[in-house]
Design a protein around this nucleic acid. Sequence first.
DNA 1: GCTCGATACTCATTTAATGAGTACAATCGC
DNA 2: GCGATTGTACTCATTAAATGAGTATCGAGC
Lengths: 182, 182
Amino acid sequence: MSPMVRTPLTIEHALLGFLRRRPMHGYEIHQQLRDPTGLWLVWRLKQSQLYALLAKLEEEGHITSALRARETGPTRRVYRLTKSGRDRFLDWVKTPVPHGREVRQEFLAKFFFAQCENRLAAKQLLRRQRAACREWLLAQRTRADDVRDSQPFEWLVRQFRIGQIEAILDWLDTCEQLLKSI
Amino acid sequence: MSPMVRTPLTIEHALLGFLRRRPMHGYEIHQQLRDPTGLWLVWRLKQSQLYALLAKLEEEGHITSALRARETGPTRRVYRLTKSGRDRFLDWVKTPVPHGREVRQEFLAKFFFAQCENRLAAKQLLRRQRAACREWLLAQRTRADDVRDSQPFEWLVRQFRIGQIEAILDWLDTCEQLLKSI
DNA sequence: GCTCGATACTCATTTAATGAGTACAATCGC
DNA sequence: GCGATTGTACTCATTAAATGAGTATCGAGC
């Protein structure tokens, strides 16, 4: 309960999304992650890195683990969400990403899990992300106009960002369409 | 002269671009880098990180350094490009980036220095990058069509990339326009 | 009975990145 | 003219992220 609210909420919080379905061991999460038509398209990590992130999430109290011995085969460490982890996940999945550069991986991951939650969660995320994008766009356009004649390189950078954000906005509409069609 | 050609050519090779203008010490490079209307818009690094990269580039033989004592003030370590560094830079600045995700930082950096070189270098880079983009676009579109009905999430990811690449292509035209107007 | 691939992790090491620290010169207020 | 601050020019210890390789067991196939 520190006064300074720590909220980096980075992409590794997507792992909580897998554990929300049911408790799983690391290897199983990695298998789900590796689905080439799922999250793997946007976020890849090595096994060892996955275990490291799980350890970190456990240390932060978002998951707990228990060793589950079996008659045959090696003992598994089964992770499950804690209350804190559940809250954190639900918060993560509804919060839009703060920069265009985070759409490619993190927003896609959020949308992936928001769909799993329910149609409403996905719609809410889309709405909020669209609002955020419109703000970025306004800021970039304003700045671009300011430097149009004086700073050619900066203008070019702003134009690049404007184009990317516009494309994101169009694509967010595509997401919405898809959502309706399912 | 290893048989396996090592060509990661990552963004730190932009530092060679600064040293191409003239030999400089680390602090001076950092000052140039920090220009808020220049490269700083797309690539920021801490002082300590800059020195680390310079040491790495020196180890790789792309730059050499010499201590330059002065009557007043602390001794400076002045870096200068080697032949290998010059070649490496010229290669870097003419090579398009291999993925859409590298346009935001690395392509912008390349274009920044290509402009400094001469109009021809910049035009060549633009042309090659456009060709690369068109290839990406084709691949993504083909794949998107294949999975259109079977893999909704993958389709969405492909659509996202298609939109981003299209926006990049439009923006590359903007770059070309700017080049002509200067 | 032996190899091969799948299961389920662990660990050492490398690489990247951060923050803080050092030391001294110049400059500015008063 | 002196104390405080800002600018110059780096260094270093530590943390954090990422990689690659290694271990050990099981079951299936030959």
